[in-house]
Design a protein around this nucleic acid. Sequence first.
DNA 1: CCTACCGATCGGTAGG
DNA 2: CCTACCGATCGGTAGG
Lengths: 191, 191
Amino acid sequence: MISVITKRESILSTAAILFRQKGYAATSMRELAEQVGMEAASLYNHISSKEEMLKSICFQVGESYLLHLTEVNQMQAGFREKIARFIHLHLAITIQNIAFVSVANHEWKHLKEENLKTFLEMRKTYEAGVKNILIKGMDSGDFRKMDPSITLYTLLSSLRWVEVWYKENRNISVQELEKNIEHFILNGLST
Amino acid sequence: MISVITKRESILSTAAILFRQKGYAATSMRELAEQVGMEAASLYNHISSKEEMLKSICFQVGESYLLHLTEVNQMQAGFREKIARFIHLHLAITIQNIAFVSVANHEWKHLKEENLKTFLEMRKTYEAGVKNILIKGMDSGDFRKMDPSITLYTLLSSLRWVEVWYKENRNISVQELEKNIEHFILNGLST
DNA sequence: CCTACCGATCGGTAGG
DNA sequence: CCTACCGATCGGTAGG
């Protein structure tokens, strides 16, 4: 199957790369236009405003993550398996859409009013879902009992660094990355 | 002892709060001036440019972290104790200077040329120092042998989330936070 | 998809 | 520390 890339998708994809590199506010529509190969005014035939692009990027990422959380929740398996699967899916989305994920992680604060509100609600839902898995895993004895909020954020942050630090040119494969992070999260530094 | 807060320090401190909230590029000098209680033109009697403020903030944070790394390196203790002390100092700096740390973490990319170069060198030195502790701890058998780079970034990210997520109004004390993170890093989720 | 253009706002300076 | 102001650039629109 040949994937059809519309002009809009190509604009969004270029915008995500620029927003990630320079930040949303410091990226101008003229610069984006130049990268895409048209005049700034022409962009508005494909998008309706600068913020609408940001919204599109952030919401796409949010929906991806919520979708994979649903998949994890439907698994018939122990909590260690569920968390391992969660880590796998989270990293897969991150690495396959690194510019989009980066923008959703760092530039969402430039969303306004309704868009901001909706985005924060998605994030809250996601966090609540993951926390729920952790709490159930602690109750079942699969995980050590500790503060669920601290555990949640430490877990999410351990995954989030990948978007910031991971460089493909380093000789670390995705598999090795995943294995190491999973092991770290389950067992820590200890032998 | 009464701490003398100069006008410059008060401007930098307000700038850090704004840069954190809205991002460096989206913060205007007029807005900063208003928060400080003067006209935009008057700011330039205390600072030389917008970027010079950013530089000051980022370098102060970088130097703090490098200083505490030196302290850890001079300890006569096992590697588990060293890492515990490292976690403690890192969190202490973070929580006591949360706006400055946030700016250094997220807004450094707006530094230019020499300033950017110097900042990245400081960060590289810091990371190399921490990685060195991890590697020695793996060699000595205190830590499990795993990829040092992945371990480094997972560790640093586990600490970094505090600046993003930690809210004082949650009923989590600094001591509890520290204890939980230290335990997570050493032992992971497992019982 | 382009040319031409708008009002608004930006960081910063002159001069006092 | 302020008033007055500069050139540059911003996101976006009109009209074709």
